[in-house]
Measured scan of single mutants.
Amino acid sequence: ETKSLTLVLHRDSGSLGFNIIGGRPSVDNHDGSSSEGIFVSKIVDSGPAAKEGGLQIHDRIIEVNGRDLSRATHDQAVEAFKTAKEPIVVQVLRR
Rank of each mutant, 00 (worst) to 15 (best):
V44S: 13
G53I: 07
A50N: 10
R94E: 01
I43K: 02
K51N: 11
N65T: 00
L5R: 04
L7K: 04
K3M: 12
E86K: 04
G53F: 06
S26I: 10
R11L: 03
V44Q: 14
L5P: 01
S41M: 02
G37Y: 02
D75P: 08
P25K: 14
E36G: 09
H10Y: 14
I62F: 03
N65A: 04
N19I: 04
A49K: 10
S35W: 12
V27N: 12
V89C: 08
Q91F: 01
K85N: 12
D45V: 05
S15I: 07
A84P: 01
S46G: 14
F18D: 03
T2Q: 10
E1S: 07
H30D: 13
G54I: 06
I62H: 02
L55D: 00
A84E: 03
R94W: 00
R24D: 14
I21P: 01
G17F: 02
P87G: 01
S4L: 14
S13C: 14
S46M: 09
D75Q: 14
F39R: 05
S46R: 09
G37F: 02
S46K: 14
K85E: 09
G53W: 05
E36W: 06
Q56H: 15
S35V: 10
A72T: 05
D68P: 04
G32L: 11
A72Y: 05
T6D: 01
T73W: 02
K85R: 09
R60M: 05
R60Y: 01
G23V: 06
D75W: 07
D75Y: 07
S41P: 00
L5V: 14
I61Y: 00
G14T: 07
S13R: 13
E63A: 15
V8D: 03
G32I: 12
D12P: 05
L7H: 03
K42A: 11
R11Y: 04
G23I: 11
K42H: 15
G23E: 09
V44H: 14
V40G: 00
L55T: 00
R95N: 14
D31G: 13
R11M: 04
E52Y: 11
A49N: 12
A84F: 01
V44N: 13
D68M: 03
D59M: 02
S34T: 14
L69G: 01
E52F: 08
R71P: 00
G66N: 05
R94A: 00
G66P: 02
D28R: 11
Q91S: 10
L5S: 03
D28N: 11
L7N: 02
G54N: 08
A49R: 09
I88H: 01
S70C: 07
R24Y: 13
K42C: 08
S41E: 07
A72D: 03
S26D: 11
S33A: 14
V92G: 01
T2G: 08
S33M: 08
A49G: 11
D31F: 08
L55K: 00
N19C: 07
R71Q: 13
L7Q: 00
G14L: 06
K3C: 10
F81Y: 08
G53Q: 08
V8M: 15
E52C: 11
R67F: 13
G32D: 11
V27L: 12
R11Q: 05
